[in-house]
Simulated assay, not measured.
Amino acid sequence: MTRRLPDFEAWAIFAKVAERGSFSDAARELRMSNPTVSKAIGRLEAQLGFALLSRTSRRLSLTEAGRQSLDRAARLLSEGEALEDEAADQLRVPRGLVRISAPLSFGTAYLGPALPEFLKTYPEITLDLALSDRRVDLVAEGFDFALRIAALEDSSLLSRTLCSVRLMLVGAPAYFDANGRPTHPAELRRHVALAYTGSAQKGVWRFGHPTFGEETIEPPVRVWADNADLLNPVLLAGQGLALQPEFLVWRQIRDGSLEVAMPDWTARPLALHLVMPPSPLRPQRVQLLIDYFARALANPPWA
């Protein structure tokens, strides 16, 4: 037989009445009405089958059973008050652990530099960052939120888009000097591709043109990698073309060590999303980090 939940409120009220020696004083301190306090004690005594307090018109005293019960009831009241004080203190001084998942290359390059200011502002918050291009299960694996670079599919997860991320077909000048510069996706069949395996369709590149529509191509791949950052040294060495996220190559494009091929043909753009479990309720420490990342990453340097 399942036991019912103890009447914690009534026990706490009993402890306060015993402490104050008066129903009315206890009611005033607890911000309750006198009848509410009286009914709670009556309810508790009815459940126990014996009296906890002896009442006369002039005096309130503990019965023997009341004296035996008071110590535990007082501890219950004290623990409850401490718990509420601690929860309120969390709002004043946010503390605790926040677990985040983020892509490896992006996290290393852009989350790391953003962290010191947050850690200085909130010294009681602890962070656990898991950097991987693997798509984690937020709920099953206990993450508070994740940063994802993708075109999100429909799901029960909540999401917040922070900024756009273009995919750019790039190669080194030395590669183009040796192999020519493609002007149409069909020409990529004659080129050397370096491919990221974490895309929705491995090895499939899709491009769109404002006049000629869409083209899909599966170029011959020389190097596969589950981390796009690994492909940059091969690109810079002039050994192939790759469809890279702008945040990984914008500096190299700016300094000329990489060049954009087929600028009139664009790959489907992605976006940086902040993805959260379905419940809209989350601890203050988590919301603070979400809002901080949203501000820090809203205007990225590659834009």
Rank of each mutant, 00 (worst) to 15 (best):
G80D: 09
A298Q: 15
S22L: 13
Q287P: 00
E153S: 13
D291S: 13
R4Q: 15
P280R: 07
R148C: 09
I217S: 04
L281V: 06
P233C: 03
V260W: 07
E19T: 06
L77N: 04
V249F: 10
E214Y: 02
K16G: 02
A267T: 01
Y175S: 07
D255S: 11
E79C: 05
N232Q: 12
D177T: 14
R31N: 14
F212N: 02
R268C: 00
Y175H: 10
A267Y: 06
R31E: 15
G80R: 15
F207Y: 04
D89S: 06
W250A: 10
R222M: 06
T197C: 10
E141A: 12
D7E: 14
Y292M: 01
D177W: 12
S78R: 15
R99V: 03
V37Y: 00
I253T: 08
E19Q: 13
G180F: 13
L131T: 05
R160V: 05
R43H: 10
S101T: 07
R148Q: 15
R28G: 11
T161A: 15
H273E: 07
P35Q: 10
L119E: 10
G66M: 08
T121H: 06
T121Y: 01
W302R: 00
K16V: 07
Q284H: 08
S199R: 12
W11Q: 14
D291K: 11
Y175L: 08
E218H: 04
V234Q: 05
D85V: 01
A109M: 13
S279C: 05
A237C: 02
S257T: 13
W205Y: 03
F247I: 10
R43A: 12
R135I: 13
A172M: 08
R190I: 01
P280D: 05
M262F: 08
M276I: 05
S105P: 04
E215N: 00
T211W: 03
T63P: 03
V192Y: 07
Y122I: 01
A174M: 13
G80Y: 11
A109E: 12
H273T: 03
S159A: 15
V93F: 08
L167S: 09
T126K: 04
A298K: 15
A172G: 07
E259A: 13
A88W: 09
R135P: 06
S69V: 00
K39I: 06
A109C: 05
D85M: 04
E141I: 05
T183S: 15
S38N: 09
A228M: 08
E124R: 07
L288Y: 09
L83I: 00
F23R: 01
Q284D: 01
L138E: 06
E246F: 02
R95P: 00
Q90F: 02
P219C: 03
